[in-house]
Design a binder for these strands. Structure first.
Length: 872
RNA sequence: GGGUGCUUAGCUCAGCGGUAGAGCGCUGCCCUUACAAGGCAGAUGUCACUGGUUCGAACCCAGUAGCGCCCA
């Protein structure tokens, strides 16, 4: 035998002693992009797998919620790429109309002291584009840092030419089908953003206001109404009561004088009035309240706007020029002076709508706006899920989806902004209205509607506009409908429903086969993370400190369908530790001569069979979990396989074998190489950087232009029950001996003479040298006199000479405890088996199991009792 | 007010009808040349409460309380 065959070949590695992510990550990402690893082809024969990114706001920055979202998407796409699909993670950003315009306006005001009106529309929009270009770079670099494997050549922006064309195209189609119309309605108006909002851009918060009851008119014919928005009384055009309300029946049809205005307003009967609320009489302000508007329509009442677009009172009279909240107090004072205030309830908690962009109290306001008629579109969007065309994960989220799609009201799509897609409607000199499609021109003398469309109108087209629609592009042909949409559940109504509506309308097919809705990120106290509450964790800081892989692993190992994620910096540290363990485990395997050359041995040893079986079971589990978006469970399975099976046991078990050298060592080195090869593949979708670095080192594939990004995803090779059973017995034996040694205060490094009996019967005879090596048991020398005997199982026992007095008390305490546990088990099982009803009704399998447990308990009691007696 | 979800070890969460689990934290021992960002061993629970169904309930049903989310 040559020296080379005898000694395990060790390998030089240039892997550092601890894992240094920052150095590895930037280099790897650049290489992947340079090698086109994330580029998808439109013309391949591979099955398509496409996920479009939920477009972040182009002028924003990524927070942990994005990091979670991107991790899940990226892991899904990377896995499918490894499974041989034509995988496309399609990136892009949206223009975020209101918030971007707000930010730029604020900056102009602060730095230059000018408003957008000073600059004019054209110049202002140019300035926003400059702003966009600057911030776009920030988003892209953040995505690169967290490892998003996107096809950068396909990146889109909601305001780019192609997507603008898509917006104009669908607008025209919807308009021509009568699904887009202009109407005067009560809409949500933000007096600060000075634009209309859709219903879902209004956030309701419970605010402490006041409920004021006041008397209109005087004497017999007077009536008391209550309101939280006192200032709107200037626009009242009626008082309404329920038609069956006896208290007011005599007043219906009469009029009452409205204070300050000199107007007489009618008292009308309307069945929608709740006679239980307040006095049962309500003031009616059709121009400033949706319910009042409906009453106004039914009774032919006037609508009087009393404020301008900034919320300043315009009604003639003493309150003109006051802000709406100043007017509220001024009117209260004036009413009080006239003795009209009947009651005041303060504080009065009630839901108040706020602008979700700037938190200003929203003013319901009569206004002429463009609307999308949603009934038909929403029906199709709902049906796509009902008939299984699109499957929602987790299924509980369907309820949330249906509750939106089935109760949708017409969508106000016009915004009084300059940053966005301008509405393609032109008005003629004689009041003509013309919708201009792509490539068409409005006639001379026409002027375009000044408003732009809601940002969500363009993001609703995202799954097909980004693939080239309305052109029939190869990309659209290949990748639509996309495989899955992955996004947080709080965006169902904003985005998911709208893409489903537009997708079914424009394409005739729903845009996704599956929708996976993940949770939100909260801090460790369960609070939603936000900048304002100061509990936000910046994902880029985590990347700089612990690495992108640690960030991704942290997020993925906590991602359970249907529940929110808790994040804290400690969790990132735990994940970093896992990466470091993986690094060192692989480094050790390499130094031990792990190799992927030569294939697996034809007759693997018991421990090799065992780890291959564990590997196969792990592959099966991981696949099943990932197919159901069970990331937390998949990560848990991998974590335990890696750390418990591979690092804690297998590496230790191979040490003596490899030190011995020879044919056995040669086989083990190949199994070792295979196990790490497969483990790194399994982990790659979630922690791509470190796995790529290690895998290339293991396989030497870099010179051959290989990459883990396109390596084949593992397949289960089959379990080995016998090997698992035998190694479990071996582990049990090892743990028992260690526990005994520990209890006796024997140092781990101290060798102890011992004889082992019964290994044959346990099927572990061949493993004796391995066992001795693991727990430092020397062969008994001549004149061996054991001082203690350990009954490890029915079959195996270990006699040891601990070279000194046995700590009888410690051992007795331990055995007594074991005895008590066994007795409790015996009691429980005996009780069950003595129960006629249990024997009669429980399934046979359960009864058998209880019988087996009883037998085990009895054997344990006998064994432990004997040992206790021997100790005495 | 209407929906909806949650309550399991100190913390974050799995388990969802047949021996209560994981990670972190905690205790003791160990710098055993892969890793102290580590190793070995160990302790830890009236599974929110009250009833019910069942041979058997953390798990199913009903109610109560607390917390959260969505919508008005």
């Amino acid at each position: 035998m040559t020296d080379a065959a005898k000694k395990p070949p060790t390998r030089e590695t240039h892997l550092s002693k601890t894992y240094a992510p920052v150095e590895v990550e930037a280099r790897r990402y650049e290489q992947w992009v340079a090698d086109g690893r994330f580029k998808a082809a439109d013309d391949s024969d591979r099955e398509p797998y496409c996920v479009v990114i939920p477009p972040p706001n182009v002028t924003g920055q990524l927070h942990l919620g994005h990091a979670l979202n991107h991790t899940i998407i990226d892991a899904a796409v990377r896995r499918e790429r490894m499974r041989g699909k034509e995988a496309l993670f399609l990136p892009g950003t949206d223009h975020a109309g209101i918030s971007t315009q707000n930010v730029v306006e604020r900056q102009l005001a602060d730095k230059e002291g000018v408003s957008r009106h000073d600059l004019g529309r054209e110049v202002f929009v140019e300035r926003v584009w400059e702003w966009k270009d600057t911030y776009h770079e920030r988003i892209s670099s953040q995505m690169k840092k967290i490892g998003d494997g996107v096809d950068w050549s396909r990146e889109r922006f909601t305001l780019d030419d192609g997507l603008s064309n898509a917006v104009q195209t669908i607008f025209k189609r919807l308009y021509d089908e009568g699904l887009i119309y202009r109407a005067e309605r009560i809409i949500n108006w933000c007096p600060r953003c000075m634009t209309a909002l859709s219903d879902i851009e209004v956030e309701h918060q419970d605010d402490a206001g006041e409920l004021v009851s006041m008397r209109y008119g005087a004497g017999e014919d007077s009536i008391v109404v209550a309101t939280t928005r006192l200032e709107t009384m200037l626009g009242d055009t009626a008082v309404a009561v329920h038609p069956d309300d006896e208290r007011y029946r005599h007043l219906v049809g009469t009029t009452v004088e409205l204070p300050f205005t000199g107007r007489r307003i009618p008292i009308v009967a309307d069945a929608h009035v709740d006679p239980e609320f307040g006095t049962g009489a309500v003031k009616v302000t059709p121009a400033h309240d949706p319910n009042d508007f409906a009453i106004g329509q039914r009774h032919g009442l006037d609508s009087i706007l009393i404020m301008d677009e900034r919320g300043v009172i315009t009604a003639h009279g003493p309150f003109e020029g006051l802000d709406r909240f100043e007017a509220r107090s001024a009117i209260a004072a004036a009413l009080r002076a006239e003795g009209r205030i009947v009651a005041e309830q303060r504080p009065y908690m009630h839901a108040v709508g706020h602008c979700d962009r700037c938190d200003t109290v929203v003013e319901p306001r009569l206004s002429k706006q463009w609307f999308l008629k949603v009934e038909r579109l929403a029906k199709a969007a709902g049906d796509a899920v009902r008939n299984g065309e699109t499957k929602i994960y987790p299924p509980e989220m369907e309820k949330r989806y249906f509750s939106w799609v089935d109760n949708l009201l017409d969508w106000c799509i016009s915004r009084q902004l300059w940053w966005g897609h301008r509405i393609p409607i032109w008005y003629g000199p004689n009041g003509e209205e013309l919708c201009v499609g792509p490539g068409e021109e409005a006639p001379e003398g026409y002027t375009q509607d000044p408003d732009v469309l809601d940002t969500w109108f363009s993001s609703g087209l995202w799954p097909f506009s980004t693939l080239g629609w309305p052109d029939e592009t190869p990309a659209l042909e290949k990748f639509y409908p996309t495989a899955t949409l992955i996004t947080a559940y709080d965006i169902i109504m904003f985005w998911v429903v709208r893409m489903m509506m537009f997708g079914t309308f424009a394409m005739g097919r729903a845009p996704f086969k599956e929708v996976y809705l993940h949770g939100l990120i909260r801090d460790k106290h369960g609070k939603k993370m936000s900048k304002s509450s100061g509990n936000g964790i910046d994902p880029l800081e985590v990347v700089d400190t612990y690495g992108a892989d640690a960030l991704r692993f942290m997020l993925a190992r906590d991602a359970q369908p249907g529940s929110d994620n808790t994040a804290s910096i400690e969790l990132a540290e735990i994940s970093r530790n896992f990466c470091n363990k993986l690094w060192n485990g692989t480094r050790f395997a390499l130094m031990s001569g792990a190799t992927v050359d030569g294939g697996l041995p034809s007759e693997p040893s018991l421990i090799d069979r065992w780890i291959l079986s564990r590997l196969s079971r792990t592959v099966e589990a991981v696949d099943a979990f990932l197919d159901d978006y069970e990331y937390a469970k998949a990560m848990d399975a991998l974590y335990h396989f890696a750390w418990d099976d591979v690092f804690d046991w297998y590496l230790e078990l191979t040490k003596p074998v490899l030190a011995e050298g020879g044919a056995a060592a040669d086989g083990t080195r190949r199994v070792l190489g295979h196990v790490f090869d497969q483990l790194l593949r399994l982990l790659h979708p979630v922690i791509p950087f470190i796995t790529e670095e290690l895998w290339l080192e293991l396989t030497g594939g870099e010179e051959r232009g290989e990459s883990l990004t396109v390596a084949a995803w593992p397949r289960p090779a089959g379990g080995d029950d016998e090997a698992e059973r035998l190694v479990a017995a071996l582990q049990h034996l090892v743990v028992e001996v260690r526990r005994f040694r520990d209890g006796q205060g024997v140092k781990p490094s101290q060798a102890v003479a011992a004889s082992l009996t019964g290994l044959d019967a346990a099927g572990l005879a061949d493993q004796e040298p391995l066992i001795r090596s693991l727990v430092r048991l020397d062969a008994p020398a001549e004149g061996f006199e054991p001082t203690a005997e350990l009954a490890v199982s029915d079959q195996v026992s270990v006699a040891l000479d601990t070279s000194g007095a046995i700590d009888v008390a410690a051992e007795r305490a331990r055995l007594t405890k074991a005895l008590k546990a066994a007795e409790k088990e015996l009691d429980g099982t005996t009780g069950k088996l003595g129960n006629e009803a249990f024997l009669a009704k429980a399934p046979d399998a359960v009864v058998d199991k209880i019988r087996a447990r009883k037998a085990t308990a009895e054997a344990d009691i006998a064994r432990v009792t004997a040992q206790l007696e021997r100790l005495a």
